[in-house]
Design a protein around this nucleic acid. Structure first.
Lengths: 224, 224
DNA sequence: ATATGACTAAAACAGCAAAATCAGTCAAAC
DNA sequence: GTTTGACTGATTTTGCTGTTTTAGTCATAT
């Protein structure tokens, strides 16, 4: 069995278990058993449980970002603010760890959240969302009179709200995801998109560039 | 000293202490000391600690609703969806207990949240927000092609997001409240308000009626 | 080489009794 | 009549014990 194959199986096992039981209640023995490998083998891929979670989080972030780009590229309205954000919310709903990170869910992330130098605290640097909106403005895809920082914050409120409502109200009171994100997209479009037509492709390019920039800065060890 | 006066002082003391320390860590002795009355006197007004919190929650809900109505009535755009919601968010930001209830904050509400028949669970009945939006549509103040249930849910996501962001990011990363709610209001207006002019007063009346209906249904013991 | 699982040290946990806390009461003071 | 605060019993916390769990290792087997 190849290393890469086995690493995937370990990560998959860890992912499914941690989603179900949470980081604290999932043991390394559980993971190795679920992955069908020995415990020692797990430690050939990952130096510690904490690092395993971080690897997992990174993988999920990359998958999430990739899905986001892919949808943005393929949809005709992927370059509009609404289309962009709808793709983001749908990708978010598909990636439980991404959601757990965004809402800092202690049920899933458990004691990892309390570590002083966890991944969440690190990436609290510059406001990439605001920068994207600013670039969208320069490209003519977003109205000039909107403050990028405030708009970025509203987007954050919406994403946070979307993935958190399940915690405080029963599932059957929450509308279906599809129509809900469609409505959010149309709301954003009517608010942010200028009346004049604009180049949707420009928006798509901006998203791709932003994600690629973020992903290369994740892995400085690959630079040469 | 009059009963009513003292009751206010007790409630004020309880409010300030519970906001700071949370329900669990605030003792009845703390409250009586802070209010400057004896413990026995507290029990002349309130039968139990739990009832004290519920009295407090009711008072805060009424104050919140009153402030909301007042601002809606006084502002020129109070009858538009945006103006209405801006007034609501500002009132929310002024009423910590209302916010704590909305976000089901266990830091503040503590063990009260776990009680099986608390106030929060009771009022989980019909979706008053959606009904208001439906009525706004009938009054011509909201576009017909918007689904009231979905729109109501988006409003809930926005309120929840607004009062919850402080929990997951530092205060200095959050924009000022005024410009933020202005932006949200203008977003909602551009999304929900029809292009044709409409009667803003009609919207104000709807809000007043809704709040009054809710407040009278709170006190069935006063009927007769 | 590569992979394993018994092993270890450290941490988490369950059980328990003593001590402290606190919601609620009521005889006494005003 | 009104108000008080010392008092009470139930609950929670604390400090301790012995036991179990678990992250990570490494001598051995493949």
């Amino acid at each position: 069995m190849h290393h890469v194959q086995r690493e995937q199986r370990v990560l998959d096992a860890a992912s499914s278990l941690i989603c179900r039981l949470g980081y604290d209640k999932t043991t390394m023995d559980d993971i190795s058993r679920e992955a069908g490998v020995s415990k020692g083998a797990v430690y050939l891929h990952v130096p510690s449980k904490e690092a395993l979670l971080e690897t997992l989080l990174m993988r999920e972030m990359h998958r999430y970002a990739s899905q986001w780009i892919a949808v943005v590229q393929s949809e005709p309205d992927g370059g509009t603010m609404g289309g962009m954000f709808r793709a983001m919310l749908l990708a978010l709903a598909d990636h439980p760890f991404m959601s757990a990170m965004l809402r800092e869910d202690s049920q899933i992330l458990g004691s990892y959240l309390r570590k002083p130098d966890n991944l969440l605290r690190k990436q609290g640097g510059r406001n990439t969302r605001a920068i994207l909106i600013e670039q969208m403005q320069q490209a003519g895809a977003v109205r000039e009179d909107i403050d990028p920082i405030i708009a970025a914050h509203i987007l954050k409120m919406l994403s946070y709200g979307l993935i958190s409502m399940g915690q405080i109200m029963s599932e059957d009171q929450i509308p279906e995801l599809g129509p809900l994100v469609d409505a959010i997209a149309s709301m954003l479009d009517s608010w942010m998109t200028p009346l004049l037509g604009f180049d949707s492709e420009a928006g798509k390019t901006l998203v791709r560039q932003m994600v690629e920039a973020a992903q290369t800065s994740d892995k400085p060890e690959q630079s040469e």
